[in-house]
Design a binder for these strands. Structure first.
Lengths: 332, 332
DNA sequence: TCCGCATATGAAATCCTTTTCACAAACAAA
DNA sequence: TTTGTTTGTGAAAAGGATTTCATATGCGGA
């Protein structure tokens, strides 16, 4: 079924049918005739032809570092809900934490394949920054702050600052930190900075030695904790950049006979389902991942509909979720 | 940049350029001329125009019930890795466990928007079954078995049978079951059947009363366990359809002062990161989710390249992961 | 009466490829 | 010599919509 066939059946021109479908001038009489034919035939215009002509694909590209991660999953859920409401589709690309691939996808998607891109960048390389500016479609950065770019991000710094302050208030003095690479500005650099500044505000210095850099996994947390524990057997607080890392650390410390929440306080970030269900439950930070996703989607749609206005940088809040692992009343 | 401009610059016809790009007859001389121009200009053909002409979008639609779930995330990861290798893109649709939406998306994606669909169905309704047969693009069902349809699925029945047998072998006699709706054939019906048959093989009957139907969440597991426990305070084994449900049940039982692995044995399914990290660790089934995803993707690509051959129904294996929660030596 | 404006219409151009078709040349086989 | 096959080429059609443009009518206001 093509528009010409519909036009013929309804006894009108192609243009009239097109107008009927797109709210142009059509007389009541013809409108009825076209409507009848369209309904009888179940005609649906070809998206490809529309795209070729209008240059709009009604698709948004979403680039994520990985898809089998709870925080990413929650963000994507937020994105899909908004896109769906507005009749857009989501084209998914997984960069595998590889900044080269992030770039490639950005270019690939830009090739008129999508109307806009939501980029969940991890590493903010110079090349990436430059590329974003060059693209012909709007880009929203999500989960990362890049000044001068449209972005929606979390207040990683203050979240970590607060959680560290909480642990400090419990009287801990021998801190260790397990984070991720500083190339990841949000989860790596910002959280670590929050940790450092909170300690500094209490007049404490962080030695290079007491901080380890791992990956986003439970196993990595376990290994890094082992390494730290050998150097600092009298550690009384372990601050981790993610829940997964913290759970790994917890496993190791428990194996060493430490009582978490008593001998050692421990914190994660992300409020994953893990945090609430390990024993003891893990003090963590709740970030608004769904909202981050939906806000990003709203922003990209706004950019598409209204054209580029002023750059928006949206910082989202967080919530401190205090559980047993940082409560040294626990188990008494 | 269009193909005509390239053709003009290279002093050849459009057709020659098209042939150059698609491995048709082009003389060495012209080939060089075209190559030079293409490289200098960085020309890339318009995907929309190609699609309009060839009717191939190089996109695969993937319909999932939800995206923020670890099993779904792992499957999607498997899918993307294969699609990416073969130059295909992934169009994501989230059905929110709503069979009406599954249907809608199936129709929507079929509208020439994608070359094929991978459908992670939960509820296999009659309407869905019928629709799949009608579609003009190939469909691969994933995570569910539907005889006569191309599908990749897990051996849910035997997995549950085995895990139940394991618990039986530990001497338990008072079983409770927490599952999900039977509308979900794989996770609901098949797993429950495996449970029932294993008990029956040991000469035991399952009373209707001792099985509850919940949702895919920790909270649901907690609530259903509470309900069951009031009826069966002397329960000594709880078999759950998913890790999340099992963890919820575990929380409740622990609150009641039960020693999991001693007083009550408990099992989940899915080998999620939760299972290995709760205390005591949870006996579970490892399903090959990534492989399920990649196999599904391979199958859909095969259908596209080679045309429809015989229907394939691939059943994947599983692995029993025995942890502390089913080990009644634990804690002695 | 005449002008301007909103409404209405369809033929044709446009978007950018791929593919068909007609036509040729070169060379091998019969 | 004739026939057939492979290689090579470009004009034009096809794919299916939207948009432009030229044209027309009816109506209110000057």
């Amino acid at each position: 079924m093509t528009i010409s066939e519909i036009a013929k059946l309804a006894g009108v021109s192609n243009a009239a049918v097109s107008r009927y479908l797109n709210n142009g001038y059509v007389s009541e009489e013809k409108r009825r005739a076209i409507k009848k034919v369209v309904e009888e035939t179940g005609y649906r215009p070809s998206l490809q032809a529309q795209t070729l002509r209008t240059k709009r694909t009604k698709m948004i590209g979403v680039i994520v570092p990985q898809i089998d991660s709870s925080s990413v999953g929650r963000m994507v859920a937020g994105i899909t809900s908004v896109l769906e409401e507005n009749g857009y589709r989501l084209l998914l690309a997984v960069s595998e934490q590889n900044s080269q691939k992030e770039l490639e996808y950005l270019i690939l998607l830009n090739e008129k394949q999508v109307d806009g891109v939501i980029l969940f960048a991890t590493v903010l390389s110079v090349a990436l920054k430059k590329k974003i500016k060059q693209l012909s479609v709007p880009v929203v950065l999500t989960g990362q702050h890049l000044s001068g770019c449209n972005c929606v991000y979390h207040d990683d710094y203050h979240a970590m600052y607060d959680v560290t302050k909480l642990v400090l208030s419990k009287g801990c003095r021998n801190f260790c930190y397990i984070g991720v690479t500083n190339c990841d500005r949000a989860v790596g650099a910002e959280r670590f900075r929050g940790f450092q500044d909170a300690l500094a505000a209490a007049g404490m210095l962080v030695s290079e030695e007491s901080a380890e850099t791992g990956k986003f996994t439970v196993d990595s947390g376990y290994e890094k904790m082992k390494k730290l524990y050998k150097k600092y057997p009298n550690v009384d607080a372990v601050i981790c950049a993610t829940d997964e890392i913290a759970v790994g650390a917890m496993q190791y410390l428990k194996q060493q006979g430490k009582k978490i929440g008593m001998d050692v306080l421990l914190t994660g970030q992300g409020d994953s389902v893990l945090a609430a269900n390990v024993s003891p439950s893990l003090t963590t930070i709740h970030y608004y991942y769904e909202e981050c996703g939906s806000k990003s989607a709203q922003m990209i749609l706004e950019l598409l509909e209204k054209g580029t206005i002023a750059v928006q940088e949206i910082k989202l809040g967080y919530e401190l979720v205090e559980h047993e692992s940082s409560n040294n009343e626990f188990g008494r």
